[in-house]
Design a protein around this nucleic acid. Structure first.
Lengths: 145, 145
DNA sequence: TTGCGTGCAAAGGTTTTGCATGGCA
DNA sequence: TGCCATGCAAAACCTTTGCACGCAA
């Protein structure tokens, strides 16, 4: 009421991090990768700064946080069109880690079905389906571990 | 195939761990909780033993490992019927943590569809769908997100 | 007796936190 | 100038690993 107080400051580090995430849109990035990326270079960014930014951005919905099956590597991905990504499933190949967006009518059916028949409202932002992607299916026919 | 050589030994620790998991069936337990549970008491069990057992049991399919949304807590839950659990989806309510087994024809369709149309072979042992369960939906508010 | 299982502790890895300084508004 | 943001390092966690001894079969 008194005076406008900025809740967040715009900083070079924040911009750099967002730039990096945007440039990697479509791919997923790990926090460790970003720490390494920003470590040695000119505009060095400390890891705590990166952690703090990613946490904030994920909370805002600007980026999406994925936890891979093993629970070890948290991945983030820039979400350009939040609305769209709310409406489809995400697949992750547990061999190569590729993130696949699947937009498909059948999958919408699932949501409806789960809600109606099983009284469960699925959260597509959190849900990731694990399995093996096309490339890895062809490539590692016998590589199953 | 002679069944002479035992691949695993039956030990007190292994039994205790399995007992604990069975007694907690229906709820999810964290590995940290188990370490603490077995730490001080009589039949003390070292944490590496617990880790090793849970890893094995999860690989066998006797228990299921899943990671909650925040990616911090790996949870395990005893699974009674392995055969069945390979063939259906699992839902986890991100509010109360309840694990729900869903066996449904529509879901089989999905597997087939993903494989045929999207060339993705889903792994039902690893996949968990996140969302909100009936009870929490009724209980109600939109506290999530 | 054989060799897997166990326990302890150390090692590895990831994420969080404390605190003094830097920099945006 | 007021305060949030930053960086560094330490702390806090979580999980894995090495190794010698115990114990099931």
């Amino acid at each position: 009421m008194t005076r406008k107080r900025p809740e967040t400051y715009r900083t070079r580090q924040g911009e750099d991090i967002l730039d990096y995430l945007r440039s990697a849109a479509g791919r997923h990035v790990t926090i460790g990768g970003m720490v390494r990326y920003f470590a040695g270079r000119d505009g060095n960014i400390g890891q705590s700064t990166i952690y703090r930014h990613l946490e904030r951005l994920a909370a805002e919905g600007t980026i999406r946080k994925y936890v891979l099956g093993d629970g070890k590597s948290a991945c983030y991905q820039y979400v350009d069109s939040k609305a769209v990504c709310r409406e489809h499933f995400h697949l992750i190949c547990d061999r190569c880690g590729t993130l696949i967006h699947v937009d498909c009518d059948l999958l919408e059916e699932i949501q409806a079905h789960l809600l109606l028949e099983h009284k469960f409202r699925i959260d597509l932002l959190k849900t990731v389906l694990y399995g093996t992607c096309d490339a890895c299916l062809s490539a590692g026919t016998e590589a199953g571990r």
